[in-house]
Amino acid sequence: MNLLAVHNVSVRYHDRTVVDHVDFTVDRGDVVAIIGPNGSGKTTLLKAVLGVVTPSEGAVHWHGSPRIGYVPQRVDLERGFPMTVEELLLLKLTDRPFWRHDRATHGRVSAELARVGADKLIEKRVSELSGGELQRVLIAFALVDRPDVLCLDEPSSGIDVEGEETIYNLIHRLAEQDKLTVLLVSHDLDIVFKYATKVICINRKLMCAGVPSRVLTPEMIQRAYSGASTYKHEHGPRSSHAH
């Protein structure tokens, strides 16, 4: 039995088809990369899978009721949003009011952050974190309630190349430790070949699905990215290169 079955899903925004009749399945323990050129509907497809966007056609079926953690590509915070990293995690960790948490809860927040190497950030404001720090904190936030599935949307966006490698290593380690099923949107084929057990390639429509080394042939990549003359791989301000 598949953990996730996406049947013929289409998503339309104001008469514009963003995702067009996409089918795929995910098994427990898979590390699935959703790839495609810019504007190909990757993020929308992930949001349809998460139930944030309602498909205009087709259906998404989760087997059982797995707990799902989500790491968005970015958070659009008001500048100077004063929430600290600790307060963000407290939103999920406890039902008690913010001003009534004790030493033990503080310790739990610290332990959750330590799992992703971010325990030193506990007192920092979320709005003051660098791209890499924010990704770690968001991963810790996603993992607080011990999900079965971790979904990440471009976890390396806004991070330099070295930071990107570290983030993917972290995701890989956590996935193994917690026996997570991972769905991640990515634009980086190197990362896909290195970490993913399955790839879903879309350009509005499904282009291919399967084991990366089998389905991602040069011809397939050329076909999927046709129209996107260069396959831009954008990082933070310090780096930018093209594939």
């Binding site: 944030v52 989500y70 958070v75 936030f141």
Partner: peptide, 21 residues
């Protein structure tokens, strides 16, 4: 405000994250 505090703060942080939570 006291009752809705967590939900409204979560939405202020990120609506999609709040929904998935």
């Amino acid at each position: 405000v006291g009752w809705s505090f967590r939900a409204w703060l979560g939405i202020a942080f990120d609506g999609d994250l709040a929904k998935i939570s």
